[in-house]
Simulated scan of single mutants.
Amino acid sequence: MRRSVSTGPIAFDATLWDEPTTGIGLYTRCLASALETLGTRLEKLGAHASGEHPRGDSGRTAWTLAGLPRVLQRLGAPLYHAHGNFNLPLTRVPGMAYVLTVHDLIPLLMPETVSRAFRWQFRLWLSRSLLMADRVVCVSERTRNDLLARFPEVEARTVVVPNGVDHVHAPELDSISVDFLRALSLPKEYVLYAGSLDVRKNVELVLDAMERLRAQGRPVSLVLAGQSWFGSGRVEQRIFRLRSEGHDVRSLGYQSDAVFYELMRRAALFVFPSRYEGFGLPPLEAMHLGTPTIVSTAGSLPEVCGDAAVAVRPDDAEGLARAIDRLLRSPEERRALAARGKARASEFTWKRTAERTLAAYEAALRR
């Protein structure tokens, strides 16, 4: 019989720990903190420089395939938890259980949004990892359903454990951040999109809505906070053109957490019309901060946001324009939506995520 979680430290995938621009990195750090608060001992493996067993200058893939199995054999932990959708070791370490978190299946569902090389890596490595995993943790029912549609054989080993959002707090700004925000001279009411500028995120729908509103004599100010990503060139070119035509579009790129959340907190509206999300943390973060939110009807967004966010179809630019206009004209509706959003977001805590993850660990160890 395999050991209990309480008999030894959990070997914990930290390969994205030092990568602050990734959602999986955020998941890794928040889950680790919540697990440790509950008394779980973790050995963090594979971060660039952090944790008990950093990988140094080795690439994540090379280290996971070649270095990680040796570390796991020396460590002798009862269980290893990988967080990166598909990145379990290719071979079994004797006596060790494996748990894998799957956030989404974007390379399989939307292959045009990732490089060909990554698409093939994802498909092949995911298939192998699902064979090795004793438990598969999916962050939403939508992700679980997408996974089972392609790999029905893992149904009995798959559980849903949603993310938390209580890592978000009203930011404490240093003097540099205060000066930066003041220099932006943002209007009192602006619409915010926060996230990468890749095709999947559907930023072009927001730009379509902006053009429609301006043509109707209702121009809006749009702030974009997020880094460039695969396929973002087209969006960036369009933003440049709109600015040259007089649209108020501020593309700020990647920002520190403090600035990012302050931009979110101050926004009149947060818009996130993504074509697919495995979970969709940014709109939940906005709701947690009390910012009225508009999302799409795609992916897991209806599941996560419920009726606490306005939803439009991901191809409905006119519907998005109407929703933006209506909410900007109605402070009362924005306040009501903000209250519903905060109540909904309060249901998603990292303590609950950690408790359900521990249950998945124990189930994996019983196999």
Score class of each variant (00 low, 15 high):
Arg326Glu: 09
Asp257Glu: 15
Phe272Leu: 08
Ala14Val: 04
Tyr190Trp: 15
Gln237Ser: 15
Val199Pro: 03
Leu207Gly: 06
Leu130Gly: 03
Cys30Asn: 15
Ile324Glu: 00
Asp146Thr: 08
Glu153Met: 07
Phe180Thr: 11
Tyr80Val: 04
Val161Ala: 06
Met132Asn: 07
Ser177Asn: 12
Ala363Arg: 15
His247Glu: 04
Ala317Gln: 00
Gly253Ala: 11
Val310Ser: 00
Phe279Gln: 00
Ala82Arg: 01
Asp57Pro: 15
Pro187Met: 06
Ala268Val: 07
Gly253Asp: 12
Met264Ser: 10
Ala34Gly: 09
Trp120Glu: 14
Arg3Tyr: 14
Lys44Val: 08
Ala336Met: 11
Ala34Thr: 09
Arg116Thr: 13
Ser185Asp: 14
Ser115Val: 04
Val312Glu: 00
Gln237Thr: 13
His48Asp: 08
Ser4Trp: 07
Gln216Asn: 06
Lys201Trp: 06
Phe240Pro: 05
Lys188Val: 13
Gly23Ala: 10
Pro314Phe: 12
Gly278Cys: 09
Leu284Tyr: 01
Val159Trp: 08
Leu75Thr: 12
Arg266Ser: 13
Arg150His: 12
Glu36Trp: 05
Pro20Ser: 09
Pro54Met: 12
Arg340Pro: 00
Ser58Phe: 15
Gly246Val: 05
Ala268Asn: 04
Ala364Trp: 01
Ser175Leu: 13
Leu263Trp: 01
Ala345Tyr: 04
Ala149Leu: 12
Leu72Thr: 02
Glu211Gly: 11
Gly76Thr: 08
Leu320Thr: 02
Ala97Pro: 02
Arg234Lys: 13
Ser127Gly: 14
Ala258Cys: 07
Ser251Lys: 13
Glu211Ser: 12
Arg214Gln: 12
Asn145Cys: 11
Tyr361Ile: 05
Glu245Lys: 15
Glu245Tyr: 10
Lys188Tyr: 07
Pro89Arg: 03
Gln216His: 08
Trp17Glu: 02
Arg367Tyr: 09
Arg135Lys: 11
Leu68Gly: 01
Leu105Asp: 03
Thr158Trp: 07
Arg356Ser: 09
Gly51Ala: 06
Gly56Met: 12
Pro219Glu: 11
Ser129Thr: 09
Gly299Lys: 03
Phe240Trp: 11
Val139Met: 06
Thr293Met: 00
Glu155Thr: 14
Ala170Thr: 15
Leu337Pro: 02
Asn163Gln: 13
Asp248Lys: 04
Glu155Pro: 00
Glu211Ile: 10
Leu108Pro: 04
Ala354Pro: 07
Ala97Asn: 00
Leu252Arg: 14
Cys138Asn: 06
Ala268Thr: 05
Leu16Ile: 07
Leu242Val: 13
Asp316Gln: 14
Gly39Arg: 08
Leu16Cys: 08
Pro292Glu: 03
Leu213Asn: 00
Gly95Trp: 07
Leu327Phe: 09
Thr101Val: 09
Ala49Gly: 09
Val310Trp: 03
Asp57Ser: 15
Pro171Tyr: 08
Ser196Asn: 14
Leu42Thr: 03
Val203Thr: 13
Leu124Glu: 14
Val271Asn: 02
Val249Lys: 00
Ser300Ile: 05
Leu16Glu: 08
Ser244Thr: 15
His247Met: 06
Leu327Thr: 05
Ser58Pro: 09
Gly246Asn: 08
Thr297Met: 08
His247Gln: 13
Ala194Val: 05
Arg238Cys: 04
